[in-house]
Design a protein around this nucleic acid. Structure first.
Length: 924
RNA sequence: GGGCCCAUAGCUCAGUGGGAGAGUGCCUCCUUUGCAAGGAGGAUGCCCUGGGUUCGAAUCCCAGUGGGUCCA
């Protein structure tokens, strides 16, 4: 680690007369202008020194501070860029949320594959860190949502020339520190009081020297100099135990916490009061939290004391509470009563801001992905509100933050919040009933509710253990929540590893081949072409044919591969599948067309046309859905086909029939407008700047240029083949919708011929039903309803008649054989009726005080035995005996049993034996 | 993407292989009558759909549909 020390000997430090010191408290090395300084200045080595003593000349609001920062760097030759969405999974698949400004440029820019949108640049990037969730409100400085203000410079070593998407050096360490110093000085900070602590950074396979900027006890910024990568042969061993070496590229990655700078300028007791004072005032008022001057003073002092401690999680807060209470001369309980409601209010304000970012950027609550995180935050916020007594609707609270952050989709945000709150209310209600029942049950048995039940309640029904405790207490049941509750839940989810994923077969055979020229982009309507067979590879079944150019579209972007033929003068081979690997298109054929030959390629036109129709139709349906449902709608997946296609859309509610009809109509209007469908290959950053991330409905393509498809007003990045004009689609018919996950709706639809076929199939079903009912199609619903009602009525009527029949049989059943069985008498009879009738008859007979043994051969051989009260015959045993004689079994309660078997021929014999069986059973 | 849970009367839910139930609401009557309530009687149901196992399935198995929930 010490090997990196040289990395910190900056020209700037030398010129400015900085000295390098070692902190006697923590042992870290730091740089300072103040030769007399002893410690590094960061808590716990030193305390906060800005509370009630702001470190800048003026107070700034969050918005003002952001503007000061961005314009400072603009004035220093940086280009200001718009922030990215907080949903980082929009452009990368390794993380869900944006947690730092550098996330915007990973992985393609940091790796040098794609140029940055500007260089150098400055941005204020909204970020969300869920891992801090428990600390929010309690430590005085943690927030889940924050903006990381930053300036970045992307450099490449001079000698590598243009190997990367950016060349040469913009600036590096000295200039970065100098800019930081200048910014601080421009705000009136006392820069002799600033310390720069050496703190090497390691993360995600990269590393480099980094500097923490400390002023008056507060870490205001981290300056990271990303210049190393993990390398088994690297000469530097860093704090994670891995070895690293220098890279060709080196990147300035800074992070200035907007909230902290704002806080520093105001010197309020906590960061929350500095960054959203209006909202906190509103919440305090709404929750009815008011303090006497004396109490306010106490709260302020407590905040200062806890701020001075180096508290990084809630457990520490609880532990520290005692110390703080001692120092203030009050009891812990007194302090807690005073401070906890405030902590909740702070957390609510923060969580609402988090939700505003998430929902504003189009995250839809769901049981998966970022949607799940949004749902968690929302429910937590709702709990906090209920807990502290905030009764303002949550959608209003989120809207306060959304308005401040300048989101334009505020109506949708409010709608989503209302829907979610309602869902949560239902879950709580359901859960509450469940817990009550359970609690009563265990209270009755005088047992505590076992851990198993707790886990089940949480895992399957979303009920927090503390809620169980609360409800259980009311019912008088005990609950013991184990300390390791959440790890027990986690255990339930541990699934045995089913081996490693199949190793990706990097096929080296295609490496030396030139990339196939993609003719299908030049003229998407053409289906014939000529090409040279560059190579043919034998496969387990069939061959991979590589051509110099092709019209065959390889499977990709949810569009299946083309099929067709490749012909020479001598032979015609069938293309069954087409794949692409490293730009080389592989035509999977059944025979070898011959390497070096000219071939005539012919794509299956009908299939291709349907695929193109469906692909363009997919864009149109998404566009229509966005228009009808709102801008938050995004594609969560898609699959095109020949007969139908489907798209999965993120939406927070079910899509009902009326809405589907509207979407269908809007989509078909675009078809009927018959506008042209065009493609272009713009620079990716320009495209993003113009159209936003909405472009990437189907995933993010790599490369400096991306292909855009314009359909009417809709623009999407897409690699598929499309029709020339929307009218070519013919028609779009939605076939079905289903909810594939919470928050994800699947729309299945058909285009062109398939739309016609789909409609005809539906009509066929209707006509067929109409024919069966012998009514006209439009009368089918009413008739079906009438038939169903009548059918039910008849069922009831039949039941009644069976009862009557049974009563009649029991009363004056003439031909039934009556036998004496000890003290009782029994009727043994064969009635070839169904089970219901048998049962009814048997019941009626036994109500008269006679044992009933009835047999039926209606479907197999079946028996019912009914015994009146007070007669010592076990019906179950009788049936068992009888059923055995027909090759089956039976049973039931002692007074009423039924059974049977397959052997109908033996039924009469069995009934004949019945009196003997009865006597036998009675004796036993 | 994966795990788990649920589907029975209008509503909330019992029902572990053999006669479909409770509470509540509904209808009628009685008592009382300002309301709340009390008493008696009554109607409720393709037990989500489709297959399978079984003599027999609301119940067990499989698939589907619809909902819930936890995790990554």
């Amino acid at each position: 680690m010490s090997e990196l020390a040289d990395e910190y000997r900056l020209e700037y430090f030398e010129e400015e007369g900085f000295v390098r010191k070692e902190c006697p408290e923590c042992g870290n090395h730091f740089w300072t202008r103040d030769e007399d300084r002893v410690t590094c200045g960061e808590p716990p080595c030193e305390e906060y020194d800005f509370i009630d003593n702001p470190g800048f000349d003026e107070e700034y609001s969050l918005e003002e501070m952001r503007e000061v920062f961005l314009s400072f760097f603009e004035d220093h030759d940086h280009e200001r860029i718009e922030p990215y969405p907080v949903a980082a999974n929009r452009w990368r698949d390794d993380v869900l949320l944006t947690q730092a400004s550098i996330y915007d440029f990973q992985p393609l820019v940091t790796s040098g594959e794609t140029p940055p949108p500007a260089n150098p640049l400055t941005v204020s990037q909204p970020c969300i860190r869920m891992q801090d969730i428990d600390n929010v409100g309690k430590t005085g400085r943690h927030t889940m949502a924050f903006e990381m203000m930053a300036h970045h410079a992307f450099n490449a070593q001079e000698e590598v020339g243009d190997a990367y998407a950016y060349e040469g050096e913009v600036y590096w360490k000295s200039r970065t520190v100098e800019l930081c110093d200048e910014l601080l000085e421009s705000l009136g900070a006392d820069i002799t009081d600033v310390t720069y602590i050496e703190d090497p950074w390691v993360g995600g396979g990269n590393a480099g020297p980094a500097i923490e900027v400390i002023y008056r006890g507060l870490e205001l910024a981290t300056l990271v100099f990303m210049c190393m990568e993990q390398d088994p042969d690297g000469e530097y061993e860093l704090k994670d135990g891995n070895t690293y070496s220098f890279m060709d590229t080196y990147i300035v990655d800074t992070g200035y916490g907007l909230e902290r700078w704002t806080w520093m300028s105001q010197g309020t007791p906590t960061v929350y009061e500095a960054i959203y004072p209006e909202m906190i005032a509103f919440l305090r008022d709404n929750a009815g939290i008011s303090h006497t001057d004396e109490e306010s003073e106490l709260v302020g002092r407590a905040a200062r004391l806890s701020g001075n401690l180096d508290i990084d999680d809630v457990d520490d807060v609880e532990a520290a509470r005692g110390d703080i209470a001692d120092q203030l001369g009050v009891s812990v309980d007194e302090l807690r009563d005073l401070v906890e409601p405030l902590e909740d209010v702070y957390a609510i304000a923060d969580h609402c801001r988090t939700l505003a970012y998430m929902l504003g950027d189009g995250i839809v609550p769901s049981n998966v992905g970022t949607g799940y995180l949004a749902r968690m935050v929302l429910r937590r916020t709702k709990r906090l509100c209920d807990n502290v007594g905030v009764d303002a609707p949550l959608d209003e609270l989120v809207d306060m933050q959304a308005e401040r952050l300048g989101y334009e989709n505020r109506d949708t945000i409010r709608d989503i919040v209302r829907t979610e709150v309602e869902k949560y209310r239902e879950t709580l209600e359901r859960g509450g009933r469940r817990v009550e029942q359970l609690a009563e049950e265990y209270a009755k048995r005088d047992e505590p509710i076992p851990t198993d039940e707790l886990i089940e309640l949480y895992d399957s029904h979303g009920i927090q253990p503390d809620m169980v405790e609360e409800i259980a207490a009311e019912a008088g049941a005990d609950v013991a929540v184990p300390d390791d509750f959440y790890s027990l839940v986690a255990q339930r989810h541990d699934t045995p590893d089913t081996g490693e994923e199949t190793a990706d077969e990097a096929d080296e055979r295609f490496e030396d081949l030139p990339k196939t020229e993609k003719l299908y982009y030049d003229d998407q309507q053409r289906t014939q072409f000529e090409a040279v067979v560059l190579d043919v590879f034998e496969r387990e079944e069939g061959y991979d044919v590589v051509l110099d150019q092709t019209m065959f579209y390889p499977e990709g972007g949810g569009q299946p591969a083309d099929t067709g033929t490749l012909s020479t003068d001598d032979i015609s081979v069938e293309v069954r599948d087409v794949q692409i690997e490293d730009g080389v298109v592989l035509h999977r054929t059944d025979e070898d067309p011959g390497k070096g030959d000219f071939v005539n390629g012919r794509v299956d036109t009908a299939r291709r046309r349907q695929l193109m129709r469906h692909h363009t139709a997919t864009h149109i349906v998404i566009h229509a859905a966005r228009e009808v449902l709102g801008d938050h709608v995004r594609q969560a997946g898609a699959q095109k086909g020949v007969d139908s296609s489907r798209i999965d859309l993120r939406h927070y509610d079910r899509i009902d029939r009326e809405t589907i009809k509207t979407i269908e109509r809007v989509a078909n209007e675009i078809v009927m407008e018959n506008t042209s469908v065009t493609q272009e290959w713009p620079d990716r950053h320009e495209a993003e700047a113009e159209h936003g991330f909405g472009l990437y409905q189907g995933g993010i393509p790599p490369g400096e240029q991306i292909r855009l498809i314009h359909v009417a007003e809709d623009v999407q990045a897409c690699g598929g083949t499309h029709v020339a004009r929307t009218g070519d689609i013919g028609a779009i018919k939605v076939l079905n919708t289903e909810r594939v996950q919470d928050g994800v709706e699947r729309i299945t639809f058909a285009a062109g011929e398939a739309a016609l076929e789909g409609t005809q199939e539906n009509e066929d079903a209707l006509y067929e039903a109409a024919e069966i009912l012998d009514v006209s199609p439009e009368d089918v619903p009413a008739t079906a309803e009438r038939f169903f009602e009548e059918w039910k009525d008849r069922g009831k009527r039949i039941e009644e008649l069976k009862e009557q029949l049974a009563a009649a049989r029991a009363g004056g059943g003439g031909d039934a054989e009556e036998v004496d069985v000890g003290d009782a008498s029994a009727v043994v009879d064969r009635i070839d009726a169904d089970m219901d009738e048998l049962r009814a008859t048997a019941n009626a007979i036994s109500e008269e005080g006679t044992i009933a043994v009835l047999g039926s051969g209606a479907s197999g051989a079946q028996f019912v035995v009914s015994v009146p009260d007070g007669i010592g015959v076990n019906a179950g045993e009788v049936v068992g005996e009888l059923a055995a004689k027909v090759g089956g079994g039976g049973g039931g309660p002692p007074d009423f049993a039924q059974g049977g078997g397959p052997d109908v021929d033996a039924l009469d014999d069995a009934l004949e034996d019945a009196p003997d069986v009865l006597r036998q059973v009675q004796d036993a």
